[in-house]
Amino acid sequence: MHKITRTDNASSVVGLSNVHKSFSPLKVLNGVSFEVNRGEVLVLIGRSGSGKSTALRCIDRFETIDSGEIVVCGHRVSDPKLDLRALRQDVGIVFQSYNLFPHLTIEENITLAPCSVKGIAKAQAKEQARRVLAQVGLEDKLHQYPEQLSGGQQQRAAIARSLAMQPKVMLFDEVTSALDPELTGEVLKVIEALAADGMTMVMVTHEMGFARGIANRVVFMHHGKVHETGSAAILTSPATPELAQFVGTGL
C-alpha cells in the first residue's frame, strides 16, 4: 500500500482545535482537535454516536459548533461571517446515501455545479465530466439516470460529481455503509486511487482493513473526544483498552 511522504513544511488543510458541540442536552463533541495536512488521509473511527460523523460534518459547516475553532483551506469555518459557498468550492463531500439528483442524468449531475457555480462553459464541463467518470470507471454511464445504476456505481458517480468541482479536500461520510462487500470493494478502489493521486481526505469508515491500508493518520473517537490517535499501526497495536475492544469487534 502506498503512503504519501510528508514534507516538513506540509501545510494544514483541515484543522480542528478544541471543538465543542452539543445537540442539547447531548454533548456530541467534547473538545475535539486534529489536523490534516496536504496529501494526507485521515480516517475517523469509533462507535456509532461517538461523534465522528458530526466532526466530519462540522468541517463542511453542515453543523455549527458551540466553541472551538475550525479552519479549512484558509476558511475560518467557525466564523459566523464565513463565505459558505467559497468553503464548499474547496471541500468535496460524499454521503452514505449517494444523493445523486434523480431527475438528472449522470452527466448533468456532474456538470451542474461546475456550470452554475464556477461558470464553466457547457462543452468544457462535459469534457470534464467524461474525465472524472473515467477516473471512477464509469465513462459508459454518462447518459444514464441514477436509478439505472447499482449502489456502488451511484456512489462512484457521486465521487466523480464531487471531483468535478476540483476540491482541495474530500470528505467521505461512511460512503460504503449502504453497500454489500462486492460493491464496497469497487468504491474503496476508487478512493485508494484518489489517495495515490495525493488527494487530501478525511473519511469516516467502519472498514478497518481498508483504514489500515490507506490511513496516514487514524483518529479514534470515544464519547465525543479523540481517545487515541496515531498512524495506522494503532489499529493493530492499540494503546487504550477502548480502541483494543473496538478493533477487536470491528475486525
Binding site: N99, A113, S116
Partner: peptide, 12 residues
C-alpha cells in the same frame, strides 16, 4: 439529503 448534496456542491 438532496438539499444537503446541493449545498455541498456550493450551489446558491
Amino acid at each position: 439529503p438532496q438539499w444537503e448534496a446541493a449545498e455541498g456542491l456550493a450551489l446558491s
